[in-house]
């Protein structure tokens, strides 16, 4: 039984088709990384999963189930019960995502007050306890302080505390380490990993940093131009990458074997106001074929059942498949 099943999510904001086809699934306790360059629709996907897109945005999905419920049918009232309670979110920049006029403690305690109906006192005690668990010294005093008195790493820990305080089933982390120093990044990652192990929360970890992915994720979805182009386990995607985009992405990351050769991906992502007719990556792809410009690769194109790539190269009739199977 999957916790989240999302099939063909589409979000358009005015003329921009920010998300064109995102399909994701998460098992309870699983950590899935959603990887892609900036502007590819990762954050829009995250916000849509909380139904927090502005009213001007149009959201559609072929299937959108969470914990056995059809999320497309939920009223705003029901959504409120879910946000912060069953699905919580960690934001990218803790400096701006925490309210500057409220104490850290009250901000962490707020979800408890709303969802669990705890008294002010009780909620505060729980918040302090959580801060202590997240290795913040003097948690009682710290809880009474304001965001501007915290350092970046501590703020992100407070942000995490705010997200996990209600023990959600799904935690969406939207680039939680991007705005932080490298040393603090490691710290935050280890906290997240620990949390996941101790509480069994499923996590959707959004990032553009492949190194971070390797450290925390069980499975990976790669996004490009508003679509998930490759989905699979960490090993599948990292060592048997199937989509040319993933391959290009990997070549753009420094590695030990070949520290001096880095390849940038030539070109820019397509304009999502007028997405290309065929494959979104075709214009930058080194494996481009004529059909790539003509038809989108919308078919279940998989190398194995759990490892899928949205690419004509993986079409059953593609000659390369013959080659591979011969090997």
């Amino acid at each position: 039984m999957k916790l989240l099943e999302l099939d063909n999510l589409q979000v358009s904001i005015g003329p921009v088709q920010a998300v064109r086809d995102v399909s994701l699934s998460l098992a309870p306790g699983e950590c899935r990384a959603l990887v892609g360059e900036s502007g590819c629709g990762k954050s829009v996907t995250a916000m849509s999963l909380l139904n927090l897109m502005p009213p001007t945005a149009q959201t559609n999905a072929a299937r959108w189930d969470f914990a056995g419920r059809d999320m497309r049918q939920l009223s705003e009232r029901e959504w409120r019960r879910i946000r912060g309670n069953e699905i919580a979110m960690i934001f990218q920049n803790p400096m701006t995502a925490l309210d500057p006029t409220q104490t850290i403690g009250s901000q962490i305690a707020e979800p408890l007050r709303i969802h669990k109906g705890l008294s002010k006192r009780e909620a505060r005690m729980r918040a302090i306890a959580l801060l202590e668990r997240l290795a913040i010294a003097n948690p009682a005093q710290r809880a009474a302080q304001y965001p501007f008195e915290f350092s970046g790493g501590m703020l992100q820990r407070a942000m995490i505390a705010m997200a996990v305080v209600c023990e959600p089933q799904l935690l969406i982390a939207d680039e939680p380490t991007t705005a932080l120093d490298v040393t603090v990044q490691a710290e935050v990652l280890s906290i997240l990993r620990e949390l996941r192990e101790s509480s069994g929360t499923a996590m959707l970890f959004i990032t553009h940093d492949l190194g971070v992915v390797a450290e925390i994720a069980d499975s990976v979805s790669v996004m490009y131009a508003g679509q998930t182009v490759e989905t699979g386990s960490l090993q599948d995607v990292f060592s048997r990458e199937a989509h040319p985009y993933t391959q290009a992405l990997k070549r753009a990351v420094p590695n030990m074997e070949n520290p001096h050769r880095l390849e940038a991906i030539a070109g820019t992502p397509p304009d999502l106001r007028h997405p290309p007719k065929g494959c979104g990556f075709a214009a930058r792809c080194c494996e481009r074929m004529a059909i790539c410009d003509q038809l989108p690769p919308n078919f279940p194109c998989e190398s194995t059942a759990a490892h899928q790539a949205r690419c004509w190269l993986w079409h059953p009739e593609h000659p390369a498949r013959w080659r591979e199977s011969e090997q």
Binding site: G267, R284, C286, E287, R288, I291, E317
Partner: peptide, 20 residues
């Protein structure tokens, strides 16, 4: 197997249409 669907393009780096 019929190959008619495919007409292989040259395997080159597609020129990036650098958007103005």
């Amino acid at each position: 197997m019929a190959m008619s669907v495919f007409r292989f393009a040259r395997r080159t780096w597609a020129s990036a249409d650098l958007e103005q």
